[in-house]
Structure formats: structure tokens, C-alpha cells
Amino acid sequence: MKKILLWAGLVFLLLVLVVGLIRSQQGQVGIGEVAPDFELISFSGETYQISDFRGKVIVVNFWASWCEACKPEAADLEAAYKFYEPRGDVLFLGVDYVDTEPEALAYLEEFKITYPNGPDLRTRISQAFRITGVPETFIINQDGIIAHVQIGPFRSLEEIKSTIDPLLDL
């Protein structure tokens, strides 16, 4: 009986180690995978549940106010949002990763960002997407499948449009 317990314990420990190793080696959620469902509460208090927006293209951008590489793309993302806003079939969401609220709000103000942005509370969203840093952007198609993963900043508004346009009925 003691031996069985000892072996069961060892097997359990090994399993925990294996699961941990696999998770750490996984990398980001990839193209073709189902996008993780998440809830984002914006700085202004609105709640966005991803699964409620099936049928729309969703652009999920991870950023932080302390992230220098996020700044060059901030204005382009806002311009893209403004460009697609009249159509109503593209949702832009900004997820503020491990940031402080005053600095995050100052950042949104500085780059005049108007699309919904909210904090990644308890880093649940970034963990679900297994991001490796900021900025990272995930573009989800109408069926809830990841269609594009952008590691690092977008270089221009055209680059953003070139990833979204193929997903839309133009």
C-alpha cells in the first residue's frame, strides 16, 4: 500500500512538471486556433464579452504605457478604428497589460485613442492568449478563429488594413 502511494505521488509530481514544461514551451495562441473567450471591463466601465461579438472581426491589441514599442502603432490603430467604424463589423479592443491606471489613461489621452480599452485584471487575458510581450495583436475572424498574430508593432495603417481587409466582405 505504501509503495502504491509513493508511486502515485511520484507520477503526480512528474505530471505536474510535464504540464508545466509543455505550457511554458507553447508560445502564443496561433493562427487557426479558436480564440480564447474573455471579458474586458473598459476604463469607462463597459463590459465586452468576446463571445457576444461572433460575426464581427475583432482586433485585440495588448499594450502598456511603459512600453516604448507600443507608441509608434498607437496612432495607426486609432486611425484603423476610425476607418472601419462606419462599417460596424470590426471591433477594436485594447488590453492594457500590467499597467497602472493613471499612466494608462494618460497614454490613451496622449494618442487620442477612442476605441474601448481596459486593464488586463489578474493578467487573465494575456495568460489566455499566452502573450510573450507587448505589443502583440490578435485578429479574430467572424467565426472566432485567430486569423492573424502580430508580434511587435504594426508599421503603418496600410499594414493593419492589409490584415483586416481579407476577412471582410468588401
Binding site: A64, S65, W66, V98, D99, T100, E103, T123
Partner: peptide, 21 residues
């Protein structure tokens, strides 16, 4: 959480500075 294995009091990044504030 930005820089691994560094406590907040010894971290020199902008994020840690914000957190100390």
C-alpha cells in the same frame, strides 16, 4: 512580471517605477 525574477524594489524598469509610485 515584466522582468523575470527581480523584486520590485530592485527593478529599474519604467513599469516598476510606476508600481513603486
Amino acid at each position: 512580471p515584466v522582468c523575470e525574477n527581480i523584486s520590485l524594489d530592485a527593478c529599474g524598469t519604467a513599469a516598476c517605477e510606476q508600481w513603486r509610485n
